[in-house]
Design a protein around this nucleic acid. Structure first.
Lengths: 144, 144
DNA sequence: TAAAATTAAATTGTATACAATGTATTATAC
DNA sequence: GTATAATACATTGTATACAATTTAATTTTA
C-alpha cells in the first residue's frame, strides 16, 4: 500500500539538474537569436574561440558530445561561415576544425551574453561556487 | 588581444549543468532498458505513479515539458499499455492521462533503479543536499 | 448573447542527442 | 609483411525538445 518514495519525482537528484539545464538554455535563446546561434552551436564556438584549431574527437571530449551530434552541427557552422572542416593530412581519419575570421569576429557580438544571462538568472555568488564545484566533481567522478 | 574570459567554456555555470544532466541520464539507460523506458518516459511515469490521473498541462508543469514533447511521448506510453489518454467530458480542451494496471505494476520493476543509480553516481550526502537546494532555488527563481 | 480573447492540445519544422552501424585509415600483432 | 584490431568520423534510426502555428473548446467582454 505505501508508495516507493525513491521513485517520487521530488526525491530525484537528476531531475532538477535536467530541468534546470533546459530552463536556463531556454533563457539563452533571445540572446543567441541575435547572433543566429543555438546553445549547442554557442558552446562549440566557445571552444573554438579558445582553441582556433581542433579535431572532432577532442572537441567532443570538451563538449561531452559525439560525432553523431557534432558532424551535422559543424556542417551547419561551416555553412554559416564561422568554421572550416578539413581532413588532416597526417592522419586522414581526423577532421580538423578551424575557426574563420567571421567566426573570430562573432566573439565580439557574443561578449555581453554572459553578463545578460547573469542578470537573467540571479544566483548568489556562494551558491554558484558550490554548484560549480559539485557539478565538476560529479563529472570528474563519472569519467572512471 | 586578450581573450574574453566570460566566454570561456570553463567559466560557464550552465555548461556543467547541461553536461552533468546528460551524462547522468546516459547512466540511466542500461537500467531503463530493462523496463523498456526512456528517461523522459521514466520521469513521466514517476508523476503518474504518484498522481494516477492528471491532464497534459499539469503534467507538463511538473516535468517542465510542453505538449509538443508530451503528446508523442504519451502516445508512445499508451501504445505500451502503461497509460490511457482521453478527452475530458467537463472541458473537452483537456486530455486526461490515467495510469493502467500495467503502468502501476511497472513501478515494482522500477523500484531498485534509484538505488542502482546511487551506486553508479557516488555523490557525498552533503553535496547532494546542497545541489538539490541550489537547483530548486534557481528553478523557483526563474518562475517569475 | 455574439464577438473577441483565452486556453489546451496537436501539429509542423528545426535542432539536438545518442546508440548502433558502416567505412576508411592507421596501428599492432604475429 | 599481412591479418587483425583499433580509431575517427559519418550515417541511420529513434526519441526528445521547443518555438510557432493551428484547431477546437471555453471564457470573457462589450
Amino acid at each position: 500500500m505505501e508508495k516507493n518514495n525513491n521513485l517520487k519525482l521530488e526525491n530525484q537528484i537528476c531531475f532538477p539538474l535536467y530541468a534546470c539545464s533546459k530552463e536556463i538554455i531556454k533563457r539563452y535563446k533571445p540572446f543567441l537569436d541575435e547572433i543566429d546561434l543555438t546553445y549547442t552551436q554557442y558552446i562549440t564556438m566557445m571552444v573554438l574561440w579558445d582553441k582556433e584549431k581542433i579535431n572532432i574527437k577532442e572537441l567532443g571530449e570538451y563538449l561531452f558530445l559525439d560525432s553523431g551530434t557534432l558532424t551535422p552541427l559543424l556542417k551547419k557552422l561551416e555553412s554559416k561561415g564561422y568554421i572550416q572542416r578539413q581532413r588532416s593530412i597526417e592522419d586522414e581519419r581526423n577532421v580538423i576544425i578551424t575557426i574563420t575570421k567571421l567566426g573570430i569576429d562573432l566573439q565580439n557580438k557574443a561578449e555581453n551574453i554572459p553578463l545578460q544571462m547573469g542578470q537573467c538568472i540571479k544566483i548568489e555568488k556562494e551558491d554558484a561556487i558550490q554548484l560549480y564545484r559539485i557539478l565538476y566533481k560529479i563529472l570528474e567522478q563519472m569519467k572512471d
